[in-house]
């Protein structure tokens, strides 16, 4: 009796020791910052000559009145709702396309993947000129067909969608790689079985391939959603959140508050909101969506 107990006891200790480094790192770089953020959001903005003071929920009250906050939040939801499904859909199509034996496959693969390799800042600079009125690429194409010139990024109605198109272009290639890997894992016997049973290719995709890709889809979706809140580099180059906050996103607004206005406490308040949103989405994805997924 006694030795078994001891063994189990030691197993416990052993297990804890093994996860300790990871727990330590995660607490240091994830949990501690979240708690410290929450703490700082309860103080006023401080400078060297005016130290910060405890103001309770004042920052949160201001947040509710802050028109810019609501605007960037709305922008961010539009941005997520457009970029996530489209980039995943396109990624899946591209993966299916280049999973077959087509001529020039490696060339196509490379060209699909290239946007992902380019740094976001470089991409933003290139697309800034694509969108330039009059002599930019898009206006030249439109002009060739007799279209009028557009002030793509200077018009609040179109600016956000211009950025969305660019981000989809940039992101799809990355997600394609995951789908491609998953497709190559599928066993060819299934395909053969499908052929024997006489299933059409759309039917086969709908009932076999797509369900088997669901674990990848979940993974890619989580990443895409997180990215849609995380990726703001292009704003710095292309619009600075303008015109009149039409393209500003939550993280960029946090950056502005923290590093242009030096109002770190309000930035902390906004960060708390961001963390809550991301936590809610992730919990939903894992708790609800994952239950419907079939793992092989």
């Amino acid at each position: 009796m006694k030795p078994t107990f001891q063994l189990r006891y030691w197993n416990q200790i052993n297990g804890w020791l093994l996860v300790l480094p990871a727990v330590f790192m995660i607490s240091l770089f994830t949990h501690y910052p979240i708690v410290s953020n929450l703490f700082h959001s309860l103080f006023s903005m401080g400078t060297a000559t005016r130290p910060e003071i405890f103001i309770g929920l004042e920052n949160y009250k201001y947040l509710l009145d802050d028109d810019i906050f609501w605007k960037v939040l709305k922008n961010n939801f539009i941005y997520s709702l457009c970029t996530v499904p489209f980039s995943i859909g396109i990624a899946l199509c591209m993966a299916l396309l280049i999973n077959r034996n087509i001529r020039g496959r490696s060339l196509v693969r490379m060209s699909f993947f290239t946007p992902t390799v380019l740094p976001m800042i470089a991409v933003a600079n290139i697309w800034l000129f694509f969108y330039t009125p009059e002599y930019g690429l898009f206006d030249q194409i439109f002009g060739f067909f007799g279209g009028d010139s557009h002030n793509w990024l200077g018009n609040p109605d179109s600016a956000l969608y211009c950025l969305i198109v660019m981000v989809i272009w940039k992101e799809s290639g990355f997600f394609m790689v995951f789908y491609l890997a998953a497709l190559q894992q599928l066993s060819p016997e299934l395909k053969e079985a499908g052929l024997v049973e006489g299933s059409g290719s759309w039917y086969y995709f709908r009932r076999v391939t797509f369900p088997l890709l669901m674990p990848t889809t979940l993974f890619v979706t989580v990443n895409a959603v997180v990215n849609s809140f995380k990726l703001v580099d292009h704003l710095v180059i292309m619009t600075k959140g303008g015109p009149d906050n039409a393209t500003s996103l939550l993280l960029y607004y946090i950056y502005e508050n923290a590093f242009s206005f030096w109002d770190t406490s309000y930035a902390a308040t906004l960060t708390v909101v961001l963390v809550l949103i991301l936590a809610a989405i992730t919990i939903f994805q894992f708790a609800v969506v994952e239950k419907r997924i079939h793992y092989q």
């Binding site: 800034l128 000129f129 330039t132 009125p133 009059e134 002599y135 010139s149 002030n151 990024l153 200077g154 018009n155 303008g242 015109p243």
Partner: peptide, 19 residues
């Protein structure tokens, strides 16, 4: 002048391109 906002970063090119 064009409607909407005019980009600071590409303005010099606009002028040099005679736009």
């Amino acid at each position: 002048m064009p409607k909407g906002t005019i980009e600071w970063g590409t303005l010099r090119t606009d002028f040099l391109e005679q736009k």
